[in-house]
Design a protein around this nucleic acid. Structure first.
Lengths: 142, 142
DNA sequence: AGTCTACATTATAATTATTCTAAACTGTTG
DNA sequence: CAACAGTTTAGAATAATTATAATGTAGACT
């Protein structure tokens, strides 16, 4: 349960101005016990519900991307028309339920560490993440 | 190098009518030596370039999704505003170059088999895929 | 073969997701 | 407390995707 002043510091220290829009978004995103996944649209809705003011969708986009660039959020890869974000910024894997479109965090104990034997590229590996898709048996693959 | 008639059979046998739009798309997608990745937009452009006729973008969407449902294409997960598709339908992993936005297929020998110790869900695992993000050293993560 | 019917397919129009950019704001500096 | 130089916001524009009305197609029955 962080206080407003802490968000101000956090933002300032990473070179982002603590505007009122950003602070509201911080509250909605980080004033929680558990990490969670969301869509830009989810977030925009939460904001206009939980707080009375409404923030332009474009601003929500800007802010989420700024937070992502600063490492406060992670973008998640699933086959979808929408981008998902995650407030859990540790390196971790996901289950994705194709029936319900639900995305579930995976404890690192649930999957054995992935061993990359050969890096095809010349570049540095930034992350290695596994996505496990599940569905009821009668569903077709992918 | 499949012939038109073979595409007709393939489509019929999976319950899709071999319309001229679909046959043209088959040609562009499957008349090749190597598998490849593409965006709906890439594909639509290729079609209007390689062939003289133009197919409505919506039809390209419909067809690609139909092919995916039938298992002739796979949708690929990367952080992007667009959906990527793959004509390589085997279960395989990917490197994603964040500098160039290039997606590279990974030989199964390059990564040790991923072992899921515990399926959190009650449902059947449909696929397990790894995405390795790479970038030049100075890039920021994600 | 020709017409009818039921369903599949196409592609325009509508919707939804994302980005561009002009206007508003902030934080210095004189 | 102006004037300037970035930032940030948010309305307007663009891009991606889907819904649906119009069209096409394959049998069934003449």
């Amino acid at each position: 349960m962080l206080k407003n002043a802490e968000f101000v510091d956090k933002l300032r220290s990473s070179g982002l101005r603590p505007t009122k829009q950003r602070l509201k978004i911080c509250e909605v995103l980080f004033n929680r016990e558990k990490t969670f996944h969301f869509t830009i649209n989810d977030l925009a809705k939460n904001i206009s519900n939980q707080l009375n003011e409404k923030i332009s969708l474009a601003t929500v986009y800007n802010t989420v991307h700024a937070f992502k660039d600063k490492g406060y959020l992670k973008e998640i890869s699933i086959n979808s028309d929408k981008s998902y974000f995650d407030t859990n910024i540790t390196n971790h894997h996901h289950f994705f339920d194709e029936d319900t479109n639900q995305l579930i965090d995976c404890n690192n104990e649930d999957i054995e560490e992935v061993r990359v034997k050969k890096n095809i590229t010349e570049k540095k590996i930034k992350s290695v993440e596994v996505l496990i898709k599940v569905a009821s048996d009668n569903q077709n693959q992918n």
